[in-house]
């Protein structure tokens, strides 16, 4: 792989994202929503002068949880299939670039766009809150941002797998929207149903929850914002007792990293080995 080519393709992706305006729309939407939520939560806090992990903080997590996976999945899903469908991928590959460079460049380019957008969203609303004043810890805010960035990579790479394996952009968008619903609702519903019907214990519920990247993110984000593991009920207590406070964070981070690395590797191998053009 040649760094120059990766950078060129990455740059091309970033410029396209900027030109197609999805990057701007995404950033603006995200910033406004985050700002509204933070504002709302701080106006609450002013009543009491004490902050806590309230529903509003949870809403911020929820916002990230709905917004980031959708954009990441769809962006990833379109990335390659769209270029394949309209022929630009074929044309690009007829030039002296390797498939690995194309994959890496496109992945990094889209990742940078999404990451910058998330950082701007958190950062701009954070500046307003910082000037106005608030008691949510800066480090917690930073960690929430970092977790959101990880969530974005994870789902972007899952989107890329979809994209590599499908020929039509429309089809890959459909699949990615389904995956979004699946990760956010269906899988949890399935676990809940199973728990109720089969009376699953704490451990299976915990393990099953970790099999879903969005759920890993949520647990990590909630535990970051709220010092109490009990907020997650017996499962939280189980995690704390079994792994300790730091151990649980390491575990969640590792799960998050795995959820990032494995899809990237699969997508990368699929794209470099299956010559479909």
């Amino acid at each position: 792989m040649e760094f120059k080519n990766v950078l060129l393709i990455m740059q091309k992706e970033v410029r396209e994202a900027l030109k197609n305006r999805w990057f701007i729309i995404y950033t603006v939407c995200f910033s406004i929503l985050a700002l509204l939520l933070l504002f709302f939560s701080y106006s609450r806090e002013e009543i009491l002068g004490v902050s806590g992990f309230g529903r509003t903080a949870a809403s911020l997590i929820n916002l990230v949880l709905l917004f980031v996976p959708l954009v990441s999945l769809v962006t990833g899903a379109i990335s390659i299939s769209n270029e394949r469908e309209n022929g630009t991928l074929f044309y690009l590959l007829s030039h002296p670039v390797e498939r690995s460079e194309v994959f890496t460049g496109k992945f990094l380019g889209l990742l940078v766009s999404i990451w910058v957008s998330i950082c701007l969203g958190f950062g701009l609303s954070g500046i307003v809150v910082g000037i106005k004043g608030g008691s949510l810890g800066a480090s917690k805010y930073l960690l929430t941002t970092l977790l959101s960035l990880l969530l974005a990579v994870s789902l972007l790479s899952i989107g890329f797998i979809v994209s590599v394996l499908s020929k039509k952009a429309a089809k890959s968008i459909g699949i990615s929207v389904f995956l979004w619903l699946f990760f956010l609702v269906f899988s949890d519903l399935g676990i809940m149903g199973t728990t109720i019907v089969m009376d699953l214990g704490i451990k299976p519920v915990f393990v099953l929850a970790l099999l879903n990247p969005t759920e890993v993110f949520k647990i990590a984000a909630v535990l970051n914002m709220s010092p109490r593991f009990e907020v997650l009920g017996p499962v939280g207590v189980y995690a704390l007792r079994s792994f300790g406070r730091d151990g649980t964070f390491y575990l969640l981070f590792s799960a998050m990293i795995l959820w990032t690395v494995i899809p990237i590797v699969i997508g990368f191998l699929a794209f470099t080995l299956l010559k479909k053009e």
Binding site: K4, K12, E16, K19, G87, T88, Y91, H95, P96
Partner: peptide
């Protein structure tokens, strides 16, 4: 190889940007 496809499809950029892009690749 310099390759000319039957039906050229380009990125939605300015012609100059496209030329520069492939020029840089090469």
């Amino acid at each position: 190889i310099g390759y000319v496809p039957q039906e050229p499809v380009f990125y939605d950029m300015r012609a100059l940007d496209i030329l520069e892009f492939f020029g840089a690749i090469r």
